[in-house]
Deep mutational scan, measured.
Amino acid sequence: SASLEDVKTAVLGLLVILQTKLYTLPASHATRVYEMLVSHIQLHYKHSYTLPIASSIRLQAFDFLLLLRADSLHRLGLPNKDGVVRFSPYCVCDYMEPERGSEKKTSGPLSPPTGPPGPAPAGPAVRLGSVPYSLLFRVLLQCLKQESDWKVLKLVLGRLPESLRYKVLIFTSPCSVDQLCSALCSMLSGPKTLERLRGAPEGF
């Protein structure tokens, strides 16, 4: 439990870093931090981490990651405290083949985003970082199938509809809506759902 406290501190630090690096160059920093966060949550489900502190780590990670939004130009952003989304000039939600690297070039400044813009690109060529939603999407499927803490599952179920409104997140990387529907149906009809959940409301 003591070591998990250190892990929790590290994860919180990564969330803060991602919130900053999403809007700064090099964009590969945001890509790497995002991948680290998603990989860490995957390990929770792989090794069945069920301690309360592990659940709190997942809760905080999902609470942040499910706020990711994308505009029509595929640029990622996060809402501010007033709910207004600021889109990044440097990070996009497109999935890119590994051989192309985590970044790609664009020939010049991008068109203005639909929300308040981030800082304008400084040079004639900007390297865009790929932060594909499919990585998070796979972890969300694991959550629906394996999550043991009701608070975490409730958060994910509550945030998913709003995330799905931003269709560009889903359609720019390999996210299977069929698998999502299947996971939701299995969660509702499967007898093991109630068996594994802690803290579920009576009558769920």
Rank of each mutant, 00 (worst) to 15 (best):
K104H: 14
S173N: 04
V131M: 15
G108L: 15
S148C: 11
T24A: 10
G158K: 12
G108F: 12
L197M: 13
I53Q: 04
K145R: 09
L160F: 05
L157Y: 01
P113M: 14
R32Y: 03
L141G: 03
Q142R: 08
C185T: 12
K104E: 14
T24C: 15
L22F: 07
V38D: 01
A27I: 13
L68Y: 03
Q146C: 12
F171Y: 10
L155I: 11
C175F: 03
S3H: 10
V139Q: 07
Q142S: 14
R196Y: 05
Y23Q: 05
G13F: 00
N80D: 13
L136C: 08
Y166K: 04
E5F: 05
P89C: 07
L67N: 15
V33D: 00
E97Q: 11
S102T: 14
R58N: 00
A125E: 09
P89V: 04
V131N: 04
G158H: 12
S176G: 06
F204I: 12
L155F: 09
L135P: 12
P201D: 10
S3Y: 07
L141R: 02
L135T: 12
S107M: 15
Y49I: 03
A125C: 15
S88R: 02
S55L: 06
C143K: 00
F204G: 03
P201Q: 10
P201T: 09
Q42R: 12
L76D: 02
R159D: 01
H40G: 01
V11R: 01
C175E: 05
K145A: 11
S107H: 13
L73T: 13
G13K: 03
D82M: 10
V7F: 01
V11H: 03
S189R: 11
C91I: 11
Y34D: 02
V168T: 15
L78V: 10
D6H: 04
R86H: 07
L37Q: 00
P89S: 11
R127T: 15
L144H: 00
V38A: 07
V16Y: 08
S88M: 02
L160S: 00
R127F: 11
S102H: 12
A10G: 08
C93I: 05
C143Y: 00
M36Y: 01
Y133E: 03
A183N: 07
E195F: 06
S189Y: 07
F171W: 05
V16H: 15
E99M: 12
R198N: 09
V177S: 03
A2Q: 11
P113W: 14
Y90P: 03
T172R: 04
I17F: 03
R75I: 01
S134K: 05
P161A: 14
L18R: 01
L184K: 00
K81M: 12
H44Y: 00
G108Y: 14
R86F: 07
S134C: 13
C185H: 05
R69W: 01
R69S: 06
F171P: 04
Y34I: 05
A125F: 11
S28V: 08
H40W: 01
D149I: 02
F137I: 04
L67E: 13
K192M: 09
P89D: 12
G199V: 07
L164S: 00
G115C: 12
A183P: 01
T20W: 04
T50Y: 09
P89L: 05
S39G: 15
L15D: 03
F204Q: 04
P112M: 09
V85M: 15
R127Y: 11
S1M: 10
R32N: 03
R198C: 11
T172A: 07
V177W: 03
Y133V: 05
A125D: 13
R196S: 07
F137K: 01
